[in-house]
Structure formats: structure tokens, C-alpha cells
Nucleic acid binder design. Structure first.
Lengths: 344, 344
DNA sequence: CTGTTAGCGCGTTCAA
DNA sequence: TTGAACGCGCTAACAG
């Protein structure tokens, strides 16, 4: 069973080169006080053996690995992908690598999933710091640099990047009411998350600003997924007094609305207007192209990375309240129209 | 500067619980020979302190972490995302976590980028094994389980998952020639990769099967990116004797053809037929929806994960030639038509 | 049942 | 310029 080539350690290199381990270590770390001759010899052996120092052992000692950590609930969602794109892009220009940690599903997280994962990565210093995406808790305990994307509190313990969720939702509502809509359905996000609540607040504020009374029946509890979005939309669109527009808390849910509308033979935007939130890559391809609130996720990832790199380099950030805010922006496409005069 | 709460180690827990480190370790690893009372006490402290064992140290000792490694050239490409989706999905059902390692760009890879990265992860056992995506080299030296996706050789040293690249390209060509096309342009992939060469071969074989002589002018050297795809398509579509169809080695390049065609005022599929390879999520959204060869990337990721998990559990795989083949399949949508009678 | 001891593979002193 | 000794946080073997 153990017949395969055994893991190669720095010792193997040292032995084969006829020097001590510390000499090899110095060669690898570009220390200056080694003879040319030895350097050559060692490098040759290193190449020959295909040796590379273990991240684990190296990080544990030197407390510096040039690796950035990214901790995500899952790595399959379009949301996550956008953030990853940004981080990836930032990292690509740097002399650093990226390590993404995930359990593959936010359903698997118990309360302190994040606590555990970030600690596992950072303790012993596998990474020089980490970006944590949409943590439910914010009570991290570490000395290593940490940047949070979309934290669940307005006063996070660590530097964080946030979007203007409430304002973005408010802008979407203004657009809808400006178009003449008065019965507007809302599909919420995962209400454990602050972002979901802020968007809900934006919805309510938008209603209030237009003098429209809140009708609880028009609020459907979603979870940011397309599947539940479909269910929510079905209910909303089957109401006796059907809404003339639906505001989905994210684009994935909005795609659910598209699906439900198709099932019910409803045309978008003629029979029902739809507006989303996120501006995923897919939004522009939908039929009709989706009007939505852009929250610049890719930029969010880039900014978070830059912040983390600064932090890891020991530079200060000087942010107010630890918060870097990325303003949202309404992107108008073809999924909204004035309500039919006969309706309502 | 060092005022933040210091990293919490198993020692802190032991001290506060009034027991030894090894006792804590046993509690954490569910060893049976600990008294109920001690277990309670230790667990309480662990929660209170928010302690989690460091992946680095743990892996180094126990050589088992329940973490799967995934090594990718970059994490931003749709190709990579599809694979990740598959791996993520497989992992979500398992009691394992996922660690993705990337340098953010395949341009940054020197020859042995992969050698280094896999060793760094595996040595010292941060992960229990790894999936390596499109490595240019296949000479890995490790005792840990490894599964390769799209290896660069037909006889890899490790279990690998591959697609029928040549056959898929051949099918695409048959479709095109069956439609009556005789001048068919081809945009290659990154020719360092085996997949790119196999698809090129499929193109040539398809030409031969239809009795069409090969015209080197109709082959443009791409690199799987949209940007270069645009450049290639511009040249192809500006030819005096313009091709009536273009076969792009992947969907990203095909999107470049869409762009170039638009620039030149050419209509797809009336003026030029386009066919891709991959069947990315985006393909169906394009206008017109892209006819392409599906290579089931998500499934590829899932299969690779399942193979790796088996390997890590010590079970044999019994694959012929170490190869698991996923057959490609032509997906016909609306981007191809018969060539205009006047053309050619 | 629990504590003590010995490393895992590496980087970092400090003498030589 | 080099090498031996030590420590990182943790687990496994062996005592008690």
C-alpha cells in the first residue's frame, strides 16, 4: 500500500545534496549567505526531485505564505462566482496565490461553521489572512487580517465591504412606483442575512414614499434561490388581486419569477413587471433582459482583496466604522413596463 | 499592533479546562476513553473560546483532514466554474470540505506551477488528495490520491477524467457539412493543451470525411478566450472567400465570433453559421442560442470528486488505462443554418 | 481514564 | 558559510 513514491521533504533534498537542511532552506528562501556552488547544486536537486515545501509546515513556522484565503458558503452560486471573479482578478496581478475554502453548502453550516473554517485556515498560518463571505456571525477571534464581505451587522469587528442594500431596493421601488405600479409583490432573501432585511426595508420604504399601504400578503419569504423563488412567484401571481409587478430580492429569485410567469401564461413585462437585485452576468441574457439593481459583486471581490493585501502588509486602512461601501445602481432593461390600465 | 486577541491553540483550551492537551485532543477526535464529565467541560471551553484546530498542524500529524483539494489555473472562467459546480455538488453531500487552490491566471504558471501547488497542499497533508484541472504536465510525484481532469496525455500516470474531444468535434463538423457547408473556419484552443489538438483533429477528420480539402487559411490560432476569439473571427470573416460557417473550439471563442459578426454586420445564422464546444450555461442565452458540443463539465467535476473520494478511502478504481471517459454530445440550437445558395 | 513523551516537516536562531 | 538544536500546534504511543 505504501509502495508509491513517498512524500519528498526538505531532508531528502539535503541528504541528496550532501548539505544540511538549513542550507537548503536558505537557498529556497533566497538568503544571500550561501555559496554560488551550493546554490546550484541544491536547485538542481530540488528540480530533479520535484520538491516543494509544504504549505502547512512552512506557514506554521514562518507565519507568512503569500496565500490569500477566501471562505465561502458555497462555490456554485452565481453570486459566489461573481465575487470569486473579482478576487481572482485582483490576485492575478499580484505575486500571491488564492486558497478558497468551502463546505459546499450553506445548509451544512451549523452556527459556527465560519468560526471553525477561518480558524483552521489561519491558525498555523496556511494563509496570510482571509476574506469571509456573508458570515452569519461576526465574532471572529484572530490576530490575522480578516475582511468581511456583506457582514451581518452594521458594526462589524473587522473591515468589511458592503453594498447599499436598502438604498438600492428603494431605488428599484421608486422606479416601479414611478411607472405607475401600486400593487407590488416582494420576494425576500434569506432573512437570517442582513442584506435580505435591508432590501426588505427598502421595499417598505419605497411603498411608504409612494403612499402605498403595506399589504403583508404581497410579501413572500424566499431564500435567494431560484427554486423557492418559483414557489413564491406562483403564490403571488395566483392572488385574486394579482400584483402588477414583482420585486425579487436577488436575480436568482427573479429568474424564478420568469419561470412561474411562463407557467401561468403571463407575459413579462406586459402582464407583470419584474425587477431583480445583483445584476448577475445572466441578467442581460434573460428574455426579456432583466431590469435589476447592480451591486458590483466583482468589484466587491477586488476591493476586499486589496484591503486584505494592505492589511497583511501591515498598512492601515482608515475606514470609517470599518466599512467600505459600494453604491448600488439601478440598471434598466426590458422587464418592467407601465401596468395595464385595466388591471388594478 | 499585537493587541488583538491572540490565536487560540489547543493549549489555551487545556489550560483553561485544567486538563492536558492530549485529553483535549481526544475529546475533539471523539475518542471513547474519556469521562463524560471531562468531555462536557472541554466542549464548553472550546465553545467559549471559539477554538478550532488548525488544519495545518492537524494534517501534518494525522495525515487525514477530510478536506478535498482542487487545483485550478484560474477560478474566474466559465469553464472552471462549471467544474467547480460539479465538485461543489459532490462535496455538499459528503462529510468533507473543499479547498481550491489557484494562482488566478494560467499566464502566471511557469512550467511546474502545478507540481508546486499540489505538493504544497498534499505534503504535510492539508488535503486528503486533490483534483488537478488541465495540467500541462502530468509528472506528479506523490503518494497521495490524485485525479486529473483533462490531462495532457492519453496515458496519464494518475486516474483521469476526459471527454471525447475528437469525436465531439467530428460530430460538429458532420452536422455542418450535412447542412451543406464546405468552407468552414476553425478557431483553435490553446494548442499546448491536448484537448485543443484533439478538437483540431476532429475538425480535420470532419473535413476529410466530407471530401473537403484542408485550407490552412481557414484555421485561426486561438487560446480559448473571447478576446482572441474576436480577433480570429475578424480575420476569418474578412477573408475574400469568406467561410459560411465557423467552428470555435470552445464556447468562449464562439462568443467572440458573435461579437465579430455583429461588428461586420453579419447575421447569424443567415450569413454565417457558428458552432461551439462546451455548452456553457451562457450558450442557451446567446442570441441566437448557440449550437454547441456538450462536454458535461459539471458531471466531470462530480465524477472526479467521486473517484478521488474512493481513492482516499483506499478503494480501487479499476479503470482501463486510468481513464474515465465522458462522451460529448451535440446540442443543436439556432446558430447554424444551410449556407446561402449565392455564397460559395 | 488521564498525563507525559515523541515526533510530523519546516524555518529560525545561534554557535562553530 | 554551515549545521545542530529548538519550536510551531497537534496527535499517537506509552505510561501511570
Amino acid at each position: 500500500m505504501k509502495r508509491r513514491p513517498k512524500t519528498i521533504t526538505i531532508q531528502d533534498v539535503a541528504r541528496k545534496a550532501g548539505v544540511s537542511v538549513s542550507t537548503v532552506s536558505r537557498v529556497l528562501n533566497w538568503k544571500s549567505d550561501v555559496s554560488e556552488e551550493t546554490i546550484e547544486k541544491v536547485r538542481a536537486i530540488v528540480r530533479e526531485l520535484g520538491y516543494a515545501s509544504s504549505l502547512a509546515a512552512r506557514g506554521m513556522r514562518s507565519h507568512r505564505t503569500n496565500v490569500i484565503g477566501l471562505i465561502m458558503p458555497d462555490v456554485a452560486s452565481p453570486y459566489g462566482h461573481e465575487v470569486m471573479r473579482g478576487v481572482n482578478r485582483a490576485i492575478a496581478n499580484l505575486d500571491k496565490d488564492l486558497l478558497i475554502y468551502t463546505s459546499g453548502s450553506w445548509e451544512k453550516e451549523d452556527i459556527d461553521y465560519y468560526e471553525r473554517s477561518y480558524v483552521m485556515l489561519l491558525n498555523g498560518g496556511i494563509t496570510d489572512g482571509a476574506i469571509v463571505v456573508t458570515p452569519t456571525s461576526t465574532h471572529f477571534r484572530t490576530h490575522a487580517p480578516l475582511v468581511i464581505i456583506d457582514p451581518n451587522t452594521e458594526t462589524p469587528d473587522f473591515p468589511a465591504v458592503i453594498s447599499t442594500n436598502r438604498e438600492g431596493a428603494f431605488a428599484a421601488m421608486n422606479y416601479l412606483t414611478g411607472l405607475g405600479h401600486r400593487r407590488i409583490g416582494f420576494i425576500t432573501g434569506r432573512l437570517i442575512l442582513a442584506s435580505a432585511n435591508q432590501r426588505l426595508q427598502g421595499y417598505k420604504d419605497g411603498l411608504a414614499a409612494a403612499g402605498i399601504p403595506l399589504d403583508e400578503e404581497l410579501i413572500a419569504i424566499g431564500d435567494y434561490s431560484t427554486e423557492v423563488g418559483i414557489t413564491c412567484a406562483r403564490r403571488l401571481l395566483s392572488l385574486a388581486d394579482r400584483p402588477t409587478a414583482i420585486f425579487a430580492a436577488n436575480d436568482m429569485s427573479a429568474m424564478g419569477v420568469y419561470q412561474a410567469a411562463r407557467e401561468l401564461g403571463l407575459h413579462i413585462p406586459r402582464d407583470v413587471s419584474v425587477i431583480g437585485f445583483d445584476n448577475l452576468r445572466e441578467a442581460v441574457y434573460l428574455n426579456p433582459p432583466l431590469t435589476t439593481v447592480d451591486q458590483f459583486l466583482e468589484k466587491t471581490g477586488m476591493v476586499a482583496t486589496e484591503m486584505l493585501v494592505k492589511l497583511a502588509a501591515g498598512e492601515p486602512l482608515s475606514l470609517e466604522n470599518n466599512l467600505y461601501t459600494i453604491p448600488t445602481q439601478l440598471v434598466i432593461r426590458d422587464s418592467c413596463a407601465r401596468p395595464l390600465p385595466c388591471a388594478g
